[in-house]
């Protein structure tokens, strides 16, 4: 018994160590981002950089959580919300609001109402579409994946199509909304985003034990008394919120989630969600904040981070597929 306890403790230490290291690294990235090149001009630098930093942390966290949980729901490590077109769906909803409600709605109502309405719509559509897709059970994973990818393309094409149909002024409004970057984050939106993400995180934290069981497979979960369908619906709703928030803040990023989630799994090597989620979230912050600092301050590229992440994330995807197949 004592041996078991000791080895358990060692085991916990074993996974705790990388987590602590990640946390330290993330903290120092944030500190460097805030202070580098400031030369004591705090009152000028901080109000600009702080909201940017908060936005990056929120987005990183949202993408990391939504990806890891989505992978559990679909039962494999390659399906992620953005690969399955969830953020394209959000873009389409944004376009649709502008298209049907027109200039009036977009210009006059404050962005908050708009955002909340869109998020609600997003939850509904995501549940309807992905609930059906994943609900059938991932019998043919490749088919599911390909359908997801093409659904994403369809959503993006439809958005592009509708954008061509609307009046050019409304189009400008929309473009601002779609291609917001970390450099132009609305503080107001940031507060709402932080509250929403906080709530979702809390909800997921309570679902952790059930998610751990679901990770063993649907049949096992059912026989252990976890209702996979109910859990999946709930989680999909929460994921839809996370994706809405992150897409609203920075626009779509296809491979970032995959990159972060696979790094987390290989680093922590654990199937327990508490650790994987935490690690993924920290890695996301390190990638975003560290990457942004590196590109902005050292290499003097301004907003190319998304492109770089896309490139690296794609390579990671290929490496996974070539090395292990798809499971």
């Amino acid at each position: 018994m004592a041996d078991v306890a000791a080895s358990q403790r060692r085991g916990e230490l074993g996974t705790a160590r990388p987590l602590i290291l990640l946390a330290l690294l993330a903290l120092s990235c944030c500190a460097i981002f805030l202070t580098i090149g400031a030369q004591g001009n705090w009152s000028f630098v901080l109000p600009i950089r702080a909201p940017k930093l908060v936005a990056m942390i929120l987005v990183g966290h949202a993408i990391a959580f939504s990806t890891v949980v989505f992978q559990t729901l679909s039962g494999n490590r390659i399906l992620t919300p953005s690969i399955m077109g969830v953020d394209a769906l959000y873009g389409l909803i944004q376009t649709l609001t502008v298209f049907f409600a027109g200039m009036l709605f977009a210009a006059n109502s404050n962005s908050m109402t708009l955002f909340l309405v869109q998020t609600m719509a997003m939850i509904g559509f995501a549940l309807a579409l992905y609930g059906t897709l994943l609900g059938r059970g991932a019998r043919d994973l490749y088919k599911l994946l390909l359908i997801g990818v093409i659904v994403g393309v369809l959503f993006r094409s439809l958005s592009g199509f509708l954008q061509r149909l609307i009046d050019p002024n409304a189009f400008v409004v929309l473009q601002d909304r779609l291609y917001a970057s970390f450099n132009t984050v609305e503080t107001e939106l940031l507060t709402v985003a932080a509250i929403l993400i906080g709530l979702v995180t809390l909800a997921f934290w309570r679902l952790l034990p059930q998610l751990d069981v679901l990770a063993l497979g649907r049949d096992t979960a059912t026989s252990l008394g976890v209702d996979p369908v109910a859990l999946m619906r709930l989680s999909l709703g929460l994921i839809a919120v996370l994706v809405s928030v992150s897409t609203a803040l920075v626009g779509p990023v296809t491979f970032f989630g995959l990159l972060v989630a696979s790094l987390a799994v290989s680093l922590v090597g654990s199937r327990r969600h508490a650790e994987t989620l935490l690690a993924a979230s920290l890695i996301a912050v390190i990638c975003l904040v560290g990457g942004q600092t590196l590109l902005e301050r050292l290499l003097h590229f301004d907003t190319a981070l998304g492109i770089v992440i896309e490139f690296v994330g794609g390579l990671v995807f290929l490496a996974i597929v070539l090395k292990r197949g798809i499971r």
Partner: peptide, 11 residues
Amino acid sequence: SGLLVPLVGLV
């Protein structure tokens, strides 16, 4: 797999 091939292509 017949469907993995197009995925690799898309990526």
